[in-house]
Computed example of a mutant assay.
Amino acid sequence: MTSGTLMDLNGVRVLRCASDGPLLDGEQAALDLIGDAMGYEAELVAVPVERVADEFFRLRSGIAGAVMQKFVNYRVRLVVLGDLSEHLSDSTALRDFVHETNQGGHIWFLADEDALDARLQA
């Protein structure tokens, strides 16, 4: 299993991944995290932005779509936590993508754990 901490935030079981560990860089990495979440009976996986491969943020690579589709298919929510400003400054498409994704209830890009806590209160 991945190194992480299971926590309860507003009644949601969250697997908070450590900042060191394998990169979220494709479908197999997504499946590994989903398996860890299921092992912990977590509903949501919170991955620090440091653990997300740069290619994920290049939408043309298709990695973000493939990873997100796995999480949706297995009904495990995904949150990328941390400062995305460097990635967002390089791509209008990515800014739009993050904005649209954050409107839904399954995949979020949030600044920190406080933002996640607030989002789960709603």
Rank of each mutant, 00 (worst) to 15 (best):
L33P: 10
A29S: 15
S19M: 10
A37M: 09
F71L: 05
Q69K: 15
V79D: 00
P48R: 10
G35W: 06
Q69W: 10
L84H: 03
G35Q: 12
N73D: 15
L44P: 08
D83E: 05
D36V: 13
L23S: 13
M38K: 15
I63N: 01
R51S: 01
A30T: 10
R58M: 12
A66F: 12
L24D: 04
A37V: 09
G65W: 07
V76W: 01
V45T: 11
Q69G: 12
S61D: 02
I34E: 07
P22T: 06
N73E: 15
Y74Q: 14
N73M: 14
V47T: 08
L31E: 04
I34S: 10
I34C: 13
S85R: 09
P22Q: 05
L81P: 02
G65Y: 04
G39F: 05
D83P: 04
D25F: 05
V49M: 01
G82M: 02
V67G: 00
V52P: 12
K70T: 12
G62A: 03
K70D: 01
V47I: 13
A29L: 07
G62P: 01
G65F: 06
R75T: 13
A53M: 01
E50N: 12
K70V: 13
V52Y: 02
Y74K: 15
D20G: 03
L33A: 08
V52E: 03
L23A: 13
M68C: 13
D83Q: 06
N73W: 11
N73G: 09
A66D: 13
E55C: 03
E27V: 15
L33R: 15
E50I: 09
F56C: 08
A46V: 12
D32V: 15
E50R: 13
A46M: 07
I63D: 00
G39Y: 05
R60K: 14
S85K: 08
Y40H: 15
I34Q: 11
L84E: 00
E55F: 01
V79G: 00
V72A: 14
L81I: 04
V47K: 08
E41I: 03
P22H: 00
F71P: 04
L59V: 05
L31Q: 11
R58D: 13
A29H: 10
G82K: 06
L84N: 00
E50V: 14
